[in-house]
Amino acid sequence: MEEYERLSGIGYKDIEPWIAPVAARKLAADAISVEEKNLLVNEIRRRLHRS
């Protein structure tokens, strides 16, 4: 994340609101493993409960 911020000039505060929607979109992608789906669902749930 630090490298991305340095190269893009975009900080975590700008990216953070997009993490849950991007994770939700990725759930619909083909060819992701059950393990990755579980990680995405857990991250989405964590973020939803935090807000």
Rank of each mutant, 00 (worst) to 15 (best):
A31G: 15
G9L: 06
V22R: 06
R47W: 02
W18R: 07
E16A: 15
W18T: 09
Y4A: 05
G9F: 08
N38T: 14
R6D: 01
R47H: 08
I19G: 07
D14H: 08
P17N: 14
P21R: 07
A28L: 13
V41F: 01
E16Y: 15
R6Y: 02
H49Q: 11
V34G: 10
K26A: 06
G9S: 11
E2R: 00
R6Q: 02
E2I: 01
R45W: 07
G11A: 00
R47Q: 13
S33K: 04
G11N: 00
K26T: 05
A24G: 13
E36S: 11
L27E: 07
D30M: 15
Y4E: 05
L48M: 12
E43H: 03
N38W: 03
E35T: 09
G11Q: 00
K13R: 10
V41Y: 01
R46E: 13
P17F: 10
R47M: 10
R25K: 12
I19H: 06
L27H: 05
E3A: 05
A31S: 15
R6W: 03
P17D: 14
I44W: 02
E3T: 07
I15F: 04
G9M: 06
S8K: 03
A29K: 15
V41K: 01
V41Q: 02
L48E: 12
I19L: 14
R50Q: 15
Y12I: 12
L27V: 06
E36W: 10
A20I: 12
E3K: 06
E35H: 11
Y12T: 10
L48R: 11
W18P: 02
R50A: 14
R50H: 15
L7N: 00
I19D: 03
A23H: 03
A23P: 01
S33G: 08
R47E: 09
S51C: 10
E3M: 03
A31W: 12
S51V: 12
K37H: 03
K13C: 01
V34I: 06
K26Q: 05
V22W: 07
E35Y: 08
E36R: 15
L7Y: 00
S8G: 06
I44M: 01
E16M: 10
S33L: 06
I32A: 04
K26C: 04
V22K: 07
A29P: 04
D14G: 01
V34Q: 08
V41W: 01
K26G: 02
E16F: 15
W18C: 06
I15C: 03
R6S: 01
E36I: 14
A20V: 14
I32T: 02
E35M: 09
R50S: 14
K37N: 02
I44P: 03
N42K: 13
I19E: 07
M1K: 02
R47K: 14
I10C: 11
P21K: 06
I19A: 10
G9N: 05
A20Y: 08
N38Y: 03
I10A: 10
V22P: 02
A29Y: 09
E43Y: 00
N42E: 15
V41C: 00
